[in-house]
């Protein structure tokens, strides 16, 4: 379980996070929703210790972040984090060089699944394919937790479908997934849990199925309620 407790972060005069707390379970897909600039990405970076929090605590299965945790949790940012001049094969080699948790068999499977060619240079890939390689590099790690920042933004519809397919596949199964999005429609049925953010605080944290069952409301309904009210 990822536990974020009372996260606070200020950039200059702007208080981006003002006491954000939530949890994300293993085996579930948790979605951080909020309009752009609300600090979703900052939270993910905070979890990965890529941006230090001003205060608050982050625990992953009860442990604090450390270098060894990068074998247990990974982050897929919204842009690929590889050197553009590398080929896909070189990028995979790089990952294999440094991560014990790199699963080459799964990487190969993902290559097939996404119909990617190893020899291609990252810089020459289309937007959609770049996003897929980015996803591949994260998914091929045998980690317990996956953080994804806006996996669907700015990608063509076919790539989107393919990426959505990943969420329902064994590639994600049993892992804890945290994704951020500002556009819930496409993935409403995919997610277990929603954390609604605004003005640096969590407005509402709920499970989607419970919300439908108990109140007959879709995620969008709740968002409408919360953000307008």
């Amino acid at each position: 379980m990822i536990e974020a407790k009372e996260l606070k972060k200020r950039f200059g005069r702007k208080q981006i996070l003002n006491g954000v707390s939530f949890t994300a379970n293993k085996g579930e897909i948790t979605c951080l929703i909020g309009i752009n600039g609300v600090g979703k990405t900052t939270i993910l970076k905070g979890i990965m210790n890529l941006t230090p929090m001003d205060s608050g605590q982050i625990l992953i299965d009860g442990e604090k972040m450390s270098k060894d945790m990068y074998e247990k949790i990974t982050f897929i940012p919204d842009a690929i984090t590889m050197i553009p001049t590398m080929t896909i094969a070189e990028a995979m080699q790089f990952m294999q060089d440094y991560y014990k948790s790199w699963n080459q068999a799964r990487a190969t499977e993902l290559l097939r699944f996404f119909k990617l060619k190893q020899e291609e240079k990252i810089s020459s890939l289309s937007k959609g394919n770049t996003a897929k390689v980015n996803l591949l590099l994260g998914l091929a790690l045998d980690v317990d937790y996956l953080l994804m920042d806006e996996p669907f933004s700015g990608i063509d519809i076919f790539s989107r479908e393919q990426i959505a397919d990943v969420f329902t596949s064994h590639l994600v199964e049993d892992r804890g997934v945290v994704i951020t999005t500002h556009e819930i429609n496409d993935i409403e049925h995919l997610i277990d849990k929603v954390v609604l953010l605004d003005n640096g605080v969590v407005l509402k944290e709920f499970r989607t199925e419970e919300m439908r069952e108990d109140e007959g409301k879709s995620v969008v309904d709740v968002m409408r309620e919360v953000y307008r009210g």
Binding site: L50, K67, M82, F94, Y99
Partner: peptide, 11 residues
């Protein structure tokens, strides 16, 4: 392509 993400996330 901010490679620093990758570098800082190396185990």
């Amino acid at each position: 392509n901010t490679f620093i993400y990758r570098l800082l996330m190396l185990p």
